[in-house]
Structure formats: C-alpha cells, structure tokens
C-alpha cells in the first residue's frame, strides 16, 4: 500500500467513485453503440451504406442540419444584440436584464413547448389576435411545419447563445474602442472593425454551443413539428422504440457524436474549453 500511494496521488481515491460510475454506466454503453453501428444487424459498413441508398435518411439529416443552421444564426444574432445591450447599460438595468435571461433559462422546456402549442395553434392566441385586428383572414399555419419548430428552438437557444457572448464582451478592454473613436473612426466603423473582431472567441463559442445543443434536440421538434418535421433525434427514438432497428439508430448516433466531438475540437482551438464550462482556469 505505501508503495501504491507513493506512485498514485491519494486524491484519485475520491475521484474514483464518479469516474468508475461514468465510465462503466455511461461511456461503456456509448462505445457499445458505436460498435453496434458496424456490427448490427451484420458486421460491416452496411448501416453507413444506407446513407448512399436511402433518400429518406438523407432528407432527415438535411432537415436536421438546415434547422440547426437557421436556429444557430437567429439565436446568435439576437443573442449578440442582448449581450451588447447588457454590457452597455447601467448596472441596475443590467441586473434586471440578467434576471429575465436567467428566468427564461430556468423555465422547464416542457412548459415552454406547451405555451407555444397554445399560442401557435390554428385557434391559438396569435392567430386569433391577428384575425381580430384584421391583419389576416385565414389562420397562419405556425405548427406542424418547420416554422413552428424554428420559433420554439430559437426561443429555447437564445439564453445559451447570450452567456458565452456576455463573458467575452465583459472582458474586452474598452479603451481600444475609445482610441478608435479618438482617431476619427465613426461608431459604425468602430463596431465592425474593432468590436466585432474582438468578440470573435465569444461568437465562435456561442455558435458552436447552440449548434451542438440543437443537433440532438428532441422535445420541441417532436411536439411543435407534429410528426411533419422529422429530425435525427426523433428518428433515432422511432428506430429504437417502434421498429427496434438498433443498427440504423446507432449509425445516426455515431454520426451525431462525431459531429459534436469535431465541433468541440474546433471550439478548443479558439478558447480553453474549461472556461466555457466554468471549470478552473489554472
């Protein structure tokens, strides 16, 4: 035992319980799924070959990627506006804004999705209100299509987009902007040529974070899409729970996992990942 502790730091003893739990009950089965993608129903790359043969699969992946890209663009642009306003206002006002943002962050995804269901339906509040003021004659179809999914997803993702941007903007040296103005640049020029480039790390973190979260999103597309907008996450659940085809589901999960890891890798080139997740910066 003394020999053991000389070589192994005693701190590992209290790391071990969680590490063992996560490795055996979580990372183990995930590796198993990756393995399944090349062995079920028969060994080989048959599951991946489906990508070349099945138009349905390609359509699902394309729908997912398209919705994720649109969601990310809207969330990050709107999030940028919120973060910018929060950094450039009085402390008091900023506290109120932060409170609203965090409350939005905390409200259950199910509650929010339910609310959109009530608001966006054919006889929902939005359509009724628009009809009452005479803007539209026929109700607009907000649900069971991509529009509804996008509204729900952007609404959910904006707080996630804001937080990394806020961190990045707060750490800027504002004297650089003052210098730019003093040297005769206009406000617009200063923003585009100084401010925006300096917030690039925040923008990248925010973009990748929202994209990664959108990629595996299940609740909102399943409910607001109403079966008409099929994304990868919902397709995986159908494969597992209804048609019991582990191979195809595992292949899609593997693609998603590699996509996420690739994006994390890209993110790590722009910033220390531990700062994004609030870990120690030592």
């Amino acid at each position: 035992m003394p020999l053991l502790t000389r070589h192994i730091h005693p701190g590992w003893l209290i790391i071990a319980p969680l590490l063992v739990l996560v490795v055996t009950l979580y990372l183990g089965p995930i590796l198993n799924i990756l393995w399944l993608s090349v062995t079920d129903p028969e060994p080989g790359l048959g599951n991946y070959a489906q990508l070349g043969e099945s138009d349905a699969l390609i359509r699902i992946i394309w729908t997912t990627v398209r919705i994720c890209i649109i969601t990310t663009v809207f969330s990050v642009v709107l999030g940028y506006s919120i973060a910018y306003a929060m950094v450039h206002c009085h402390q008091r006002q900023k506290n109120y804004m932060l409170t609203l943002l965090l409350v939005a962050f905390w409200i259950s995804i199910l509650v929010r999705t339910f609310s959109w269901l009530m608001l966006l339906g054919r006889r929902g509040l939005v359509n009724v209100a628009l009809e009452d003021i005479g803007l539209i004659v026929e109700p607009i179809a907000f649900m069971r299509n991509e529009l509804g999914v996008l509204i729900g997803m952007v609404h959910y993702m904006i707080p996630y987009a804001v937080l990394p941007l806020l961190v990045s903007m707060q750490s800027l040296d504002t004297r650089v902007m003052d210098a730019s103005r003093n040297l005769g640049a206009s406000g617009v020029q200063t923003f585009w040529r100084i401010y925006l480039p300096m917030t690039t790390p925040g923008l990248v973190a925010s973009t990748l974070l929202v994209f990664i979260l959108s990629l595996g999103f299940y609740v909102t597309p399943a409910i607001l899409g109403g079966g008409k907008v099929l994304m990868v996450a919902e397709y995986i659940s159908v494969q597992l729970l209804v048609t019991l085809q582990w191979g195809t589901a595992a292949m899609l999960a593997a693609l998603m996992l590699f996509g996420v890891l690739a994006m994390l890798w890209m993110m790590s080139r722009f910033m220390k990942l531990s700062t994004v997740f609030g870990g120690s910066t030592r």
Binding site: I15, L19, Y26, P29, I30, N32, Y218
Partner: peptide, 25 residues
C-alpha cells in the same frame, strides 16, 4: 485535467445519445 474533460462529456453529448446508452445498458 483529462479526467475532468471526460467527466464533463455527459453535459455536452446530445441527450438522445445518452438516452440510447442508458436504454441499451
């Protein structure tokens, strides 16, 4: 630090994949 990164994976891996993993095991 490597172990820390490993332990943060459940937060960043899409929930649907986590669900699959637990269901499988």
């Amino acid at each position: 630090e490597l172990v820390r990164a490993l332990l943060l994976l459940p937060l960043i891996i899409p929930q649907i994949i986590s669900a699959m993993a637990f269901y499988r095991l």
